[in-house]
Write a protein that binds this DNA or RNA. Structure first.
Lengths: 340, 340
DNA sequence: CTGTTAGCGCATTCAA
DNA sequence: TTGAATGCGCTAACAG
C-alpha cells in the first residue's frame, strides 16, 4: 500500500499538499490538484485511517455491545444501527457478551483501548457499572432498548410499561379475566413489562393469581416449560401475556400439545413482533416494536453526541452537557393477529 | 486517558521501560517493573491500540462483509465468528451490504483504509471482484458459506450439491416422484443446490417438469408467491424441495391456505435449519447446516492465515503461499421432522 | 497558495 | 538492564 509520501514524490509536491487535496482542508491550485489526483489514481492510494485516527483523535468507529447477535431482536437492532452509521461513515465493531456476562468490564476496556468514538449498549449493565464507566471516560454512550435511567446516558426505545399495559388491556377488553403472565429475568426490561401487566390488572379491577405467574428465561423452550408449569395446576387461565415472542411461541406450543386450542381455549399475546410471530399458526397477536427504528435512532443520537463533543472541544476545550434528548420514546402498537 | 509518557514520568522511568513491561518484550528489573505496574494501576493506563497498530502494522481487527445481519442465517454465522475472534483478541467490524450490492468495492476500500488484518465474506462477490481485490492487497480473505472456487481464497461451508441431493433423495425414498423445486437467485449457492436437485432426479430416473420449477428471492413472502405459481397450473407436485427454510415456510403457508394438508397432500423439505423451521407446524424437515461452526472455522482459519503471514514476513520478507486448507467442508445432515 | 516542521502514542533500534 | 533517539503515516501550525 502506497503512503502519502510516495504520492507526494510521484506528484512532485509536498506531503502537505497531498493531505490538503485529500481532505479539501485548504485551497490548492488546479495544477497541483490534478497532479495529485493522477498520482492517487495510478497508485490506488488510500489514506491510512489508523494514522489519521492517531492524530485526529477520532476513529470513526462505534462499538456495539450486544448480548447475542444471533438473537433476532438484537440482530435487527444492529441492522438499524449499521444502516445509519454506514451513511455517516462510521464503522461498527461488535462485542458479543453472550454467556460471559461477568466480563463486561473487559469489553468496556477493549473499546476504550481501541478508542471507539461512542458506544451503543444493547445489553443491560448495572447502574454501578455504567457510572463507573462514565467516571473513567467521557466516551458517549447510548442505551438502545435498555430502559435504565442514568444521568448523561440517553435511552432509545419504547414505553415498556404502557406497551405491556396495552397488551393486557387488549386481553381484558376481549373479555378475559383470568390472565396469566410469563415473564423474564430481573432486568429493567422484565420488571417494567411485569409492572405494566400488574397495572392493567389493577386498573381493571382484576385480581392476579400467584399460580398464573411464571418466570423463565427468554427462549422458545423455556416458554414451553413455563407454560407446562402454568398448566399443571389443573385449572388454567383463559389468556396468557408473555413478555417476549419467543416465550409466547413456546407457550402456545405447549398449549397445543396439551390439547388446548388457540385462541378458542386459551389466548396469547406476545411482545416484540419478531419474525417468528408471523410464521407460527395461528399468527401471534403481539406488541409491535419498531426495532430497526430504535437502532437507527440510537445510532443517530450517538453520532450527534460524538460530533457535538468534538465540536465543543475545539471551541471551549471543556465538555458540553450531553445531548438534551435524554429519552427517545418510539411508538409501539398492538398488532392483532390470530391468538386472541 | 493517560499515555505512556505520563506513566513513565509517574514511575520515574523512560517510556521504553514502560513499553517493555507492558509487552514483556525485554527483561526489566523487578524494582522498575513494580514502579511501572503501580503507576499503571493508579492512573488506569491502557495502551493506545491505535498507536500500536500504526507502528506494528497490525490492527487486530477483522472485517466481516455480510449481506444482511438481521437475517438469521448470517446472524448465526456472525455469532460463531465473534466467538473465536474474541478469544484470539481480535475485534470484528461488520459491513452490511444489504441492498446496495453494487458498492462492495466501497466496502473493500473501507476495510483496506482501516487496515483490517483479514476479511470474512458472507456475501457473494463476483470472481472478478475477488481477483481484483487480491491483486490490490494481500489481506487474507475467507469465504464462509459462499461456495466459490478462487485460488488463494479458502472456503468454509458444506457440500452444497450433496446436501441438496440428500434432501431430494429423501423425498424420493419416501415414494415421491413428482418433485417440485423452489430455488433462488443465480448465486453460486443457488446454482449448486439446484444442481443437487437435478442430479438426484436424474440418478433416480425421475423427470423434472418445467412447470414445477420456480425461482424466487429467499424470503418467506417470496416462497409463498412461488408456491402460488406452482399451484396455479391445476396439477401440483406431491413434494417440493425449497433451497432455503424461509422459502419453505412461505410455501407451506401457501399450501395450507389453498387447503392442502402437509404432509398428507404435499411434502416439503427446506434447507439451512434456521430457527423458524422448528417453530412452524408441522416442524419443517430440512437440511441441517452447522452454521455457527462454519463461522467458527472460518474465523479460526482466517486468524491462522493472518498469524502465518505476519510470522513469515518477519523471517523471509516475502509472502508464503496461503494456507493449505483451501476448502473446509463441514458435515450437513438431514433432520426429519414433520413435513414429509 | 505551498513547503517545512513538529508531533499524535507507541515499539524498537542503538548506545551507554 | 536502561534511556535517548528514530519513525510508523498523517494533519496542522508556521513560515514563506
Amino acid at each position: 500500500m502506497p503512503n502519502i509520501k510516495m504520492i507526494a514524490r510521484k506528484a512532485g509536491v509536498s506531503i502537505s499538499t497531498v493531505s490538503r487535496v485529500m481532505n479539501g482542508s485548504k485551497p490548492v491550485s488546479p495544477d497541483l490538484q490534478k497532479r495529485v489526483y493522477d498520482a492517487v489514481q495510478q497508485m490506488n492510494y488510500k489514506p491510512n485511517s489508523i494514522a489519521r485516527s492517531l492524530i485526529l483523535k477520532k476513529t470513526n468507529l462505534i462499538g456495539v455491545v450486544v448480548p447475542d447477535v444471533s438473537n433476532s431482536f438484537h440482530a435487527q437492532l444492529l441492522s438499524g444501527i449499521e444502516e445509519i452509521t454506514a451513511q455517516a461513515d462510521y464503522g461498527v465493531m461488535i462485542c458479543n457478551v453472550y454467556r460471559n456476562m461477568k466480563q463486561q468490564q473487559k469489553y468496556f476496556n477493549l473499546m476504550l483501548e481501541r478508542h471507539v468514538d461512542g458506544i451503543i449498549l444493547l445489553h443491560e449493565n448495572t447502574i454501578e457499572e455504567l457510572n463507573e464507566f462514565q467516571k473513567m471516560t467521557n466516551t458517549p454512550l447510548v442505551l438502545a432498548s435498555v430502559p435504565l435511567e442514568v444521568p448523561g446516558i440517553p435511552f432509545v426505545g419504547i414505553d415498556e410499561i404502557t406497551a405491556a399495559y396495552d397488551a393486557v388491556t387488549h386481553l381484558i377488553e376481549k373479555g378475559h379475566k383470568e390472565i396469566g403472565l410469563i415473564y423474564g429475568d430481573c432486568t429493567a426490561l422484565g420488571i417494567l413489562r411485569k409492572e405494566g401487566y400488574e397495572k392493567a390488572m389493577r386498573d381493571h379491577g382484576l385480581t392476579m393469581k400467584e399460580k398464573y405467574l411464571t418466570q423463565c428465561p427468554c427462549s422458545v423452550d423455556h416458554g414451553y416449560q413455563a407454560m407446562e408449569q402454568l398448566l399443571c395446576s389443573g385449572s388454567h387461565p383463559t389468556a396468557v401475556f408473555c413478555v417476549s415472542d419467543e416465550m409466547a411461541v413456546g407457550a402456545m406450543d405447549c398449549a397445543y400439545d396439551k390439547g388446548l386450542r388457540v385462541p378458542e381455549d386459551i389466548s396469547f399475546v406476545g411482545f416484540d413482533d419478531i419474525e417468528i410471530s408471523q410464521v407460527v399458526r395461528p399468527r401471534l397477536t403481539t406488541i409491535h416494536q419498531p426495532i430497526k427504528e430504535i437502532g437507527k435512532e440510537a445510532a443517530r443520537l450517538l453520532i450527534e453526541m460524538i460530533e457535538k463533543k468534538s465540536g465543543s472541544m475545539k471551541h471551549s476545550g471543556k465538555d458540553q452537557a450531553a445531548s438534551d434528548e435524554s429519552r427517545i420514546i418510539l411508538k409501539h402498537s398492538l398488532v392483532e393477529r390470530g391468538t386472541v
